[in-house]
Design a protein around this nucleic acid. Sequence first.
DNA 1: ACCTGAACACCGTTCAAGT
DNA 2: ACCTGAACACCGTTCAAGT
Lengths: 232, 232
Amino acid sequence: MATKTKSTAQPRIPLSRDRVLGAAVKLADDAGIESVTMRKLAGELGVEAMSLYYHVANKEELLDGMVDAIVGEIEEDCGGFAVPEGVNWKEALRKRILTARAVMLRHRWAPGVLETRTNMSASMVRYFDTLLGIMVEAGFSYGLGHNAMHALGSRALGFNQELFVPADQGQEDQNDEMLAQMADQLPYIVGMMQEIAHDDPDSMLGWCDDQTEFEFGLDLILDGLDRLMNKN
Amino acid sequence: MATKTKSTAQPRIPLSRDRVLGAAVKLADDAGIESVTMRKLAGELGVEAMSLYYHVANKEELLDGMVDAIVGEIEEDCGGFAVPEGVNWKEALRKRILTARAVMLRHRWAPGVLETRTNMSASMVRYFDTLLGIMVEAGFSYGLGHNAMHALGSRALGFNQELFVPADQGQEDQNDEMLAQMADQLPYIVGMMQEIAHDDPDSMLGWCDDQTEFEFGLDLILDGLDRLMNKN
DNA sequence: ACCTGAACACCGTTCAAGT
DNA sequence: ACCTGAACACCGTTCAAGT
């Protein structure tokens, strides 16, 4: 009963796998990954939860698809995954990895989801294949290339889990008191933080610049590989 | 009505935070972290789900407590977290990190849970403090020590997320056909796998030895830090 | 002080049914 | 071919109540 008019009688675009995945990515970007439930995602698409199952087998496959979408963005931003010819391997790897990182920064939920995937998607394997290809074409043995991939770990995809976020250091209100309290338990961390505060009093933030830290670690590994390469 | 006898009228040990956490760790070890629900955990303790809330504020705090228990094991296996005197920093770090790794291998769910914690537990900060302490006492500046911690990332706790698990390579049934199929899409990975198969046909497993790979990456970083140290 | 029962607001998912 | 309603088996959590 009653009319079905919802504003200007939209013809209602039919759902599709791509629309579902696109909406899921957007929802995760805007509201966090914990908001990506079948019901809420359906709501976002103006549809019932059960309709999603027509386009996606289940939630795991939805998450797999979201990851694929992210790898697609990396591929696009890299201008394709073909192995470039006659380039410096270190620069080529570095460029790709920092491109991947830029994508991860746009989709902060992606690293967490990635870590829960049990087997790698086809597109991600292709990404890794080019990374390996860049090394092999530059003269890496397969063995060293393999070791290199493991050494890079998640850094190959542009992220590095930050475990080192000492509890609530954000609030600078009671900073000094707190530091004094912790000083005997955590002498070195407190020392580190004090030296920082000394160098740059009003921004603890700028000090722990993720990008700088990421590149430090990345270059440490790339330089280490370089040295192993030239040893042969 | 009826009697309450359950086997030999156990006096029933009262619950405690430690018993709850211990049971949670055991349940995760035995049945996987996805089995650690308030209801199942309560069941394991012969108690109603709601009883747990008397000893633990909510599920997040339960997970925090489980992480603390794991850090406790690391501390025990390290013989305490005190910064050792007059030792080689590289060996001291390496020993601690490999000890942490051994604990993680006993509790395979721990890395995943660790990554979901939003702020570090007190005991984990203490662990990191000694790592930093070992470096600082060996002459690292706080800045280099800080960089080193980030470069190590999760490796400091003995794990490194394995993203490089190309889909279902376990089944060796149709291995050759599959490799041929993938060869054009993934030339380098296939090349890598064939070289391996050639060297050691009947054990893909031995090749991707996590421990070896972990140590390769760890040493790459430690050696890189060593070089930066001696540059000053 | 410690534990529980009933209830609530969520999940993912199945299945038979609608158009 | 595509979408839905009702229902099921789970979650974490609250709250008032039992001993």
